[in-house]
Design a protein around this nucleic acid. Structure first.
Length: 434
RNA sequence: GGAGAGAUGGCUGAGUGGUCGAAAGCGGCGGUUUGCUAAACCGUUGUACAGUGUAAAGCUGUACCGAGGGUUCGAAUCCCUCUCUCUCCGCCA
């Protein structure tokens, strides 16, 4: 949600900012509704004050033993007028709220212009895509070749867009997650959190997935439904809900590993092969809660923390500044990290790091007490993948493939892989041991 | 799953229809006293919205005592529904 005062006073300016995203905002319609709200609110509060004064008078008269009959008669007709005024005000206020919850965040001034991802701007590159002296295979060929990646079984169990991994690959994913969490907690100042994977609607409204993007979410059909988290951003950021932090409490950095569940409605036909786009994937998430003045800097920090992971894994990547038309609903500014996938001969998104400014904070009433004035102010929230484990696994498999179809284990992951330096087909000997 | 008890301001906790945004204590902030610290004493101390104000301050009003609805001229207080917490029993990773 953006500042209602700003919507009121500078609605044309806001509309121009939205237009950069390709989002149309009816500024005149909003202003008209806002005018109605104002007059209804003044009228309602006036009637309430009147009623309160009368009630107080009646109380006093009764205490003094005066006959309250005439006073009651005088007040009786007020009820209907007050009810009507309150109902009218409620209608207008919820109409305004519906509009406000559907408006995206304001773009930061330095967000590049553009309609879609083709207009995104490369900021920097790290590493050189390796050249292979044998025919390059993609993660599907490699994983299935090793007998460790099984889409057929997953389809039997759950249908399309799921995967079963086993042996070294299953462990590789766990190793990646452990490595990422250890790095962020040990070196980047994050606090590790374990959080619910099922959340209720208000949490998703807080981060911006609802009310507009419910179709992207899985929902239980229990009486009061739960939603499966599409990202740990939802529970982690909602830790700040309805909180007024002391100035010294910020900044806070949280990290969590969770599975992520996405319905991928509307992405039929995209990335149907392999495990690039799944209904369920693992991710390590990074969330910052900061003072408003620090969020611009914090986005650079957060992005660099995700980059460290790719650097330590030796995976070539580039950083891309998303353009106005490609940026997410809640974000003012976003950097994507795109990792090199030899199997596709292109860079693919592996992390998305966003400054959500006060957009989510306003929705979830996350505030901090100003050290000088003592007044509560909205905090700024940021989130980013640090990084998506499923896609990191694909990147490791494809970038570390060897001529015989085995996968070399990146140095930093070996401690998490029981010292193994290579992933091979599960050996018969091991199976017999079991 | 069964039975019971609760939910009040930063915290503890009083308040069972009117003068209650809410006693008291603790904590916080400001001050007095004081070699320093501590203690003592005095004052102050919620959030949001609206109106007024050039703005800050201030002033005025409205709402908020877990959430939503109801009764009433008037609800923290009475009624209904829901959520959460605690205790006991059962079951269970």
């Amino acid at each position: 949600m953006i500042d209602p005062k700003l919507l009121r006073q500078a609605s044309d300016e806001v509309a121009r900012n939205f237009a950069r995203r390709g989002f149309t905002f009816d500024a005149d319609g909003y202003r008209a509704l806002e005018e109605r709200r104002k007059s209804l609110q003044i009228e309602t509060e006036r009637l309430q004050a009147e009623r309160n004064a009368s009630a107080k008078g009646i109380g006093k008269a009764k205490a003094e033993g005066v006959d309250i009959g005439p006073l009651l008669a005088a007040v009786r007709s007020m009820g209907d007028r007050l009810d009507a005024a309150e109902a009218g005000l409620n209608d207008v206020q919820s109409a305004l709220e519906d509009i406000e919850l559907g408006l995206p965040n304001l773009l930061a001034p330095d967000v590049p212009e553009g309609k879609d991802d083709t207009a995104n701007v490369e900021v920097r590159r790290w590493g050189e895509p390796a050249s292979f002296e044998f025919p390059v295979r993609d993660h599907i060929e490699l994983g299935e070749g090793l007998g460790l990646l099984d889409f057929d079984s997953a389809a039997k169990i759950s249908g399309a867009r799921f995967v079963v991994m086993s042996g070294g690959l299953a462990r590789l994913q766990r190793a990646l997650i452990q490595f990422m969490l250890d790095t962020h907690t040990g070196e980047h100042g994050y606090e590790e959190a374990y959080v619910p994977y099922l959340v209720h609607a208000p949490a998703l409204i807080g981060t911006g997935q609802l009310p507009k993007f419910g179709a992207d979410l899985f929902r239980t059909d229990s009486e009061s439904p739960f939603y499966l988290v599409p990202t740990a951003e939802v529970p982690l950021t909602n830790l700040a809900r309805d909180t007024i932090f002391d100035a010294a409490d910020l900044p806070r950095r949280y990290t969590a590993h969770t599975p992520c569940f996405r319905s991928e409605a509307g992405s039929y036909g995209q990335d149907t092969r392999g495990m690039i786009r799944q209904h369920q994937f693992e991710k390590v998430e990074l969330v910052h809660l900061v003072h408003a003045a620090e969020s611009i800097r914090a986005l650079e920090d957060l992005t660099s923390h995700a980059e460290v992971i790719l650097q330590r894994l030796g995976l070539p990547y580039r950083v891309v500044a998303l353009c106005a038309g490609d940026i997410g609903f809640s974000a003012a500014k976003t950097y994507d990290l795109e990792v090199w996938l030899p199997g596709q001969r292109r860079y693919r998104e592996i992390s998305s790091c966003s400054n959500c400014t006060d957009f989510q904070a306003r929705r979830m009433k996350a505030r901090v007490r100003n050290a000088d004035t003592g007044k509560p102010e909205l905090i700024h929230t940021l989130n980013g993948s640090g990084v998506a484990a499923g896609r990191a696994l694909i990147a490791v498999v494809e970038n570390y493939q060897q001529a015989d179809g085995s996968i070399q284990v990146p140095e930093v992951l070996r401690p998490y892989m029981g010292g193994d330096s290579v992933i091979t087909r599960r050996s018969v000997a091991v199976q017999e041991q079991l």
